[in-house]
């Protein structure tokens, strides 16, 4: 597993901000880069699955610890 290129902290933000900020952040990255996202919105779980499915970016990791959801997305390329 290669290193995470950037971490995006969207804890405390509600829908649609986690996805919107992720879409903004991934624009800054290069193809194949890994973006880590930390969120507390439970809606983020289905949303990240839908978003990666629709945009072609790959959801490579997904976990939850103490109410914080962690996602790692690989930018398509």
């Amino acid at each position: 597993m290669s290193a995470v290129a950037k971490t995006l902290d969207v804890k405390g933000l509600n829908c649609p901000l986690p996805i919107v900020k992720t879409a903004q952040a991934i624009k800054e990255l290069a193809a194949g880069d890994l973006l880590e996202i930390l969120a507390t919105d439970p809606g983020a779980v289905p949303d990240f699955n839908a978003w990666t499915k629709s945009t072609g970016n790959e959801l490579v990791e997904q976990s939850e610890e103490a109410g914080v959801y962690r996602f790692v997305v690989k930018k398509k390329g």
Binding site: C15, P16, I19, V20, T22, A23, D47, A50, W51, S54, T55
Partner: peptide, 11 residues
């Protein structure tokens, strides 16, 4: 605005 942002994020 939320519907719009969600749809935009999905391309």
């Amino acid at each position: 605005s939320i519907l719009t942002a969600g749809a935009a994020a999905l391309g």
